[in-house]
C-alpha cells in the first residue's frame, strides 16, 4: 500500500537534478534562460515532492530496458492493428467491454499500467474501481488477457515491485 515516508535529501536532490535537466533540454542549454529556469525548477521540485511523497522504490535498470523494449514493440503492434482494422473496405471491429482484476498494488505502477494499456492492440481502459479495471476492446472476440499480464509484469519489473500471484 501507499505508505507516506519523508523524502530523503538525496531524493530531493535527484528530483531537482531531473527538473534542471528537463529545463536544460527545453531551452537547448541557453545560459541566460536560468534567470527564469532556476525559480521554475525550484517550484517544479516542490510540486513534485508535494504530489508524491512515497518512499523511493527500488528502481531497476534492467526492468526499465525490458519495459522500453516492450513499449516500442507494442506501440508498433497497436498502431498497425488499428490501421488494419479501420482502413479496410469493411471495418473489422466488434467492440465490447470486459473486466479484469488488477494485480499491482503500487499506485504509481497502476497509473503507468493503465496508461500503457491504451497502447496495446485493441485495448483501452474505460473505468477503474478498486481492484478491477474495465477495458474496452476493439474486438471482443479476442482475449487480451495474456498481453495484459505481460504488460503488468513489465511494469512491476520497472518499479521493482511484485505483481501478486493470481488468487481470484
Amino acid at each position: 500500500m501507499a505508505h507516506k515516508a519523508a523524502l530523503t535529501l538525496p531524493g530531493i536532490m535527484a528530483r531537482t537534478a531531473a527538473m534542471a535537466g528537463i529545463w536544460w533540454v527545453i531551452t537547448q542549454g541557453r545560459a541566460d534562460s536560468w534567470l527564469v529556469g532556476a525559480p521554475a525548477v525550484a517550484v517544479a521540485t516542490l510540486a513534485s515532492v508535494q504530489l508524491s511523497a512515497h518512499a523511493p522504490s527500488r528502481f531497476s535498470l534492467l526492468g526499465l530496458l525490458r519495459f522500453l523494449a516492450m513499449f516500442v514493440v507494442e506501440s508498433v503492434r497497436g498502431g498497425v492493428d488499428v490501421a488494419r482494422r479501420t482502413l479496410g473496405y469493411r471495418l473489422r471491429i466488434r467492440p465490447g467491454f470486459r473486466r479484469y482484476r488488477l494485480h499491482l498494488r503500487d499506485p504509481r505502477a497502476r497509473v503507468l499500467l493503465v496508461n500503457c494499456i491504451s497502447l496495446l492492440p485493441g485495448t483501452l481502459v474505460s473505468n477503474l474501481d478498486g481492484e478491477h479495471m474495465e477495458v474496452h476492446l476493439l474486438d471482443a472476440g479476442e482475449d487480451p488477457e495474456p498481453d495484459l499480464r505481460r504488460l503488468e509484469q513489465a511494469v512491476a519489473g520497472l518499479f521493482g515491485v511484485q505483481a501478486e500471484k493470481r488468487n481470484v
Binding site: 506501440s75 508498433v76 498502431g79 488499428v82 471495418l91 471491429i93 497502447l119 492492440p121 474496452h136
Partner: peptide, 17 residues
C-alpha cells in the same frame, strides 16, 4: 469508427506511433 470508445482507440494508438 462508429462509437466514442473505438474512436479513442484509433486516436491514441495511431497518434502515438
Amino acid at each position: 469508427l462508429p462509437d466514442l470508445y473505438s474512436r479513442l482507440h484509433a486516436l491514441t494508438k495511431a497518434d502515438n506511433l
